[in-house]
Nucleic acid binder design. Structure first.
Lengths: 192, 192
DNA sequence: CGAGCGCTTGATTGAGTTCAAAAATCGTGG
DNA sequence: CCACGATTTTTGAACTCAATCAAGCGCTCG
């Protein structure tokens, strides 16, 4: 499982085998069976998850019991409730596995330890965080201005692999529409 | 104008008068007249703006020419295109003044200089950034799950002062609805 | 003081929801 | 490996919330 992480990091930052060994020690590998809930709303998040196989998601449950998916995390993505993890506040959302998955989990102090091993490690983590922020901004812009169909097309452009392996009702939940609407949109799109 | 910043910082971090003097030197005060555009989509953002008087906003213009407001920044708020500023990439949005305003503008290297003056300065800036991220997440959740009326009520709870001084069509633009709809929602809300 | 902008109100339209039921797919145990 | 039950997806019909189009009112500011 660590080799997935190694390949991922190669694209972001340079490091020696020794350094990577030290980084590997910051992670605990774990198999997660489909459906397992790793974090519940209200709990304090203790881990950051790097997904090496399968797929996780984060989501909220609204007052009517409806799920709204915030993020999908397939291979090479990380996921957690950043705010809860860093400030040790109650989490805003749930995290669970939507496929049989394998993750590398890291602790709250990961960032400091990572920076101690790799001088630009802090820089890199910050960049990743900025990217998340930018993605979230784009999503707001999309929700404000684009139709359901446009948002769907945007989604499959952005997450082509996720779009194929995830149940449609979850994509609908991510887009903020009903599964019925997504089904109809897909029919329209197929007939151009 | 610097005393507004001083009061603001007092609530976040402790510092001596000397330190504050050094911080003040990182900022350039500027009067901005209503309607002035400080950043355009596609430009590279060079400044972070801390608002000491008036109100700025950031917004995108979609393919149909419609504006969608991302953020309001009244007194004691900062605003910029973080991503553009830090990575020197083209900005995603516009920033302009919706009232006669006064701002303190800081350069790209502000964070390092600020950290050099105040040991926990970097920590503080990071916390502010995390808060922005959390706010953006909440907005996504709201857009996914709440009705226009619920979003409006949420808005006036979160920005009671902004709700009173900003034109309604801009609030509508922030909420992702038309001015007509907002007008009707307000009528409904008034009659309970 | 008039032109233009912002807000309101009304009538109509339309995108997406809800409810219901059938069709397709998945997963599990025998 | 098949069969059966459960879940997911599709389809249809009625409905609803918000958008669009259009007109009128009231400011303000030039």
């Amino acid at each position: 499982m660590l080799d997935v992480l190694k390949d991922y990091l190669r694209g972001k930052i340079s490091f020696t085998d020794e350094q990577f060994k030290a980084i590997g020690d910051l992670y605990t590998p774990k198999k997660i069976s489909k459906g397992t809930i790793l974090l519940r709303e209200g709990e304090v998040c203790q881990h950051n998850f790097f997904v090496t196989r399968g797929c996780l998601r984060s989501y909220v449950v609204d007052k009517n019991g409806k799920e709204h998916i915030i993020q999908f995390a397939p291979e090479n993505w990380w996921i957690s409730d950043q705010n809860s993890l860093l400030k040790q506040e109650p989490a805003m959302f749930f995290i669970d596995a939507i496929e049989e998955s394998e993750v590398l989990l890291s602790e709250r102090d990961f960032n400091e330890k990572f920076s101690a091993i790799l001088p630009n490690g802090g820089q890199m983590m910050q960049t990743l965080f900025h990217n998340s922020f930018k993605a979230m901004q784009k999503r707001v812009i999309n929700l404000l201005g684009a139709s359901a169909e446009e948002r769907y097309l945007e989604f499959i452009k952005l997450y082509p692999t996720v779009a194929l392996r995830v149940p449609q009702k979850m994509i609908a939940s991510y887009l903020g529409i009903t599964p019925e609407s997504l089904s109809r949109i897909r029919k329209d799109v197929a007939h151009q």
